[in-house]
Nucleic acid binder design. Sequence first.
DNA 1: CTATAACTCTCAA
DNA 2: CTAACGTTGAGAGTTATAG
Length: 427
Amino acid sequence: MPIFALVDCNNFYASCEKLFDPRLAGVPVVVLSNNDGCVVARSAEVKALGIPMGVPWFRIREQARRHGIVAFSSNYALYADMSNRVVEVLAQFSPDIEVYSIDESFLDVSGFEGTGLAEYGRQIRERVQRWLGLTVCVGIAPTKTLAKLANHCAKKNLAGAAGVCDFTIMPPADLDALLTRIDVGEVWGVGRKLTPRLQAMGIGTVRDLRDADAETLRSRFSVVLERTLRELRGTSCLALEEVVPDKQQIICSRSFGERVHDLEALQEAVASYLSRAAEKLRQQGSLAGALTVYIRTSPFNPSEPRYQKAVTVPLPEATADSRLLARWGRRILKQIYRPGFAYQKAGVMLSDIRPRLRNQLSLFSSSRATRANGRLMQALDQINARWGRGTLRLAAEGLDKEWQMKRGHLSPGYTTEWAGLPTVKAR
DNA sequence: CTATAACTCTCAA
DNA sequence: CTAACGTTGAGAGTTATAG
């Protein structure tokens, strides 16, 4: 029988930004999505102000100014670096770890019951706090779904959790009472659409869901929800996934900093995104058999003429060559582009992905040429790994990239750039 | 008609 | 000055299509 601990960093992106600037202690901090579009992370002070997750930045800008909120553009290099450090610490507590997202990991802690799992959870919390200055909460339970829920309780300080909540030793009556106080929408897998549908059936709390009729839910909804139900009842249906499988599709898309009108700028963007996507593809040692390119105008502004189009082409031969993919991308974009629109976003998707080894060659392919191209891409990747992404790139990507996303509030690369090292000023 | 492909919907962080 | 609203990936279910 597994026992899962879900360890989740509090306000992760905002906490990372605060970490390197002591003046931000007690200051409300938000982190913005790409293009400085929406609020994607809020410090405790911001949550206390009632600012909702996901709100467009421009809509709260005035309010933010009044409250002295400090905003940061998202700095994924920083967050990924801190995330790796957290995982290193967590790995000391269990050999079985699933890195579920940038700020969450599941640990299998069965076998560590000795001093009590809650105590173990407190040690985890303590060590991450001491070594990295980041606060985590720990939820412990016999299934992943319940561990998620226990983590929620730890965060909200329900049942006197204080950062750690262990369902495995909770008396059933206490657990029932607790689950009665939590909205069904908090359950992992119950989202925006499912919540109101369940509520309409009289299922408003986690306890209602747990005690609902499995057969009815199966027929009215899906096997996914039935699985959730079993997990809530304590039967583990979701295993710890320690090895990350290869991606089946690789997407790269961005909103532009300013609207883009002309084809050539779009071509640069598509070539750039394809370079990035192909790099990811090569990293996992795969080839793509199909390529999608799409462009669209803003879906939000009702006064702008709308247009969106996506086209997928199967490639005659699967490839991971940036130049070949860029050439195909160019052809597709030329085909879907319509002049006279204010484009807001473009994107590419690589699909029909397969391992590079034992790839089926086409009748007319030259394996010698393929190998040479492979070596070229390898050299390109090595140079960019050594000297930084974008050191060597396709001419088609353009030089000025005036379509690039906005990042007006970027913090220094505290842990990733020499120039970003915090300095102490003499006084 | 069946098997599969293609597309849509939902969810998550 | 004004207008301005993220990205990536998976899986299930549904619909379209080919043979």
